[in-house]
Design a protein around this nucleic acid. Structure first.
Length: 118
DNA sequence: TAAATGACAAGTG
DNA sequence: CCACTTGCCATTT
């Protein structure tokens, strides 16, 4: 449950994820960076996990920096679901991996992803 | 208040 | 390129 009525990191992350366009994906670290903390990639994963696979948010458009679907073990069925959802949006998924270099959604500016400048 | 947790990431050998 | 180690940080116990 949300115990902080103010703009929490969680709320911001939810906003970011909600803005990922169909057919695109974002890395956890990228979402964290967009939320203001490039180092808090792990929290992004935790938050998405708390949403549940039946959430309204496009949680399936978030993968790790290598383009792999990262869901940990026990929810192995969710991995299949995520892959299906991505494929349904036109994203090529091979062995639980997407071509992040091609499908990654870049936020507003190209200067705000860690120290990496395109 | 302190310790544990985790759908990550970058660095090292 | 692959396996292992270290750093990170919001949230929960």
């Amino acid at each position: 449950m949300i115990s902080n009525p103010d703009l929490s990191f969680t709320e911001i992350v939810l906003e970011i994820v909600a803005k990922i366009p169909t057919g695109k994906v974002m890395a956890y670290g990228q979402v964290a960076a967009a939320a203001g903390n490039p180092r808090a990639a792990r929290q992004v994963g935790n938050i998405l996990g708390g949403l549940g696979i039946d959430s309204k948010l496009p949680w399936w458009r978030v993968v790790n920096s290598k383009g792999y679907i990262s869901i940990r073990g026990h929810s192995h069925d969710a991995k299949s679901i995520q892959a299906q959802l991505l494929v349904a949006e036109g994203i090529e998924v091979i062995d639980n991996q997407v071509d992040i270099g091609r499908y990654q959604f870049r936020t507003w500016s190209s200067l705000t992803y860690g120290s990496i400048v395109c």
